[in-house]
């Protein structure tokens, strides 16, 4: 191999740069992000429960939203029957955001922290919130 020294040094520098974020964070405590659910609608609920359990929603809300999207748009199926037998209208704007009217403190806190930018809000209208 020509320029063996330079090539190997180059590879090492490259790997160091690429893995830098992992080393940088190792050993440091993770910030706990807790999305707020203290909206007036949720406060008024007798049982504070989303369409599915908190754990399920936390882990799977994106898949559920994709399923809802396809069900409503593609199959004309606009009612969701939850695992506890209750029915909900399938609508991000009118069902999800009716309770979670605090998009900034609910959706955005986690999404900003994890650096994901879902394109939901390019089209769907976020609830009116007081500017903070």
């Amino acid at each position: 191999m020509y320029d063996r020294g330079k090539v190997i040094a180059g590879i090492i520098i490259f790997l160091a740069l690429v893995t830098f974020p992992f080393f940088y964070k190792t050993g440091k405590a993770n910030v706990q992000i807790e999305p707020k659910i203290n909206t007036p609608v949720i406060e008024g609920l007798s049982e504070k429960k989303c369409v599915e359990s908190k754990e399920f929603m936390r882990a799977n809300h994106m898949q559920l939203l994709n399923e809802w999207r396809d069900a409503a748009v593609r199959d004309g199926q606009r009612t969701y029957v939850a695992s506890d037998g209750k029915s909900y209208a399938i609508s991000l704007q009118n069902t999800c955001m009716n309770c979670h009217s605090n998009k900034k403190e609910f959706c955005d806190t986690c999404h900003s922290y994890t650096g994901v930018k879902p394109y939901c809000w390019d089209c769907h209208i976020a609830p009116m919130e007081a500017k903070r």
Binding site: Q93, D122, C123, H124, I125
Partner: peptide, 10 residues
């Protein structure tokens, strides 16, 4: 004016 019950497009 915006109908808050319906999405817009992008």
């Amino acid at each position: 004016s915006v109908n808050a019950e319906y999405p817009t497009r992008t």
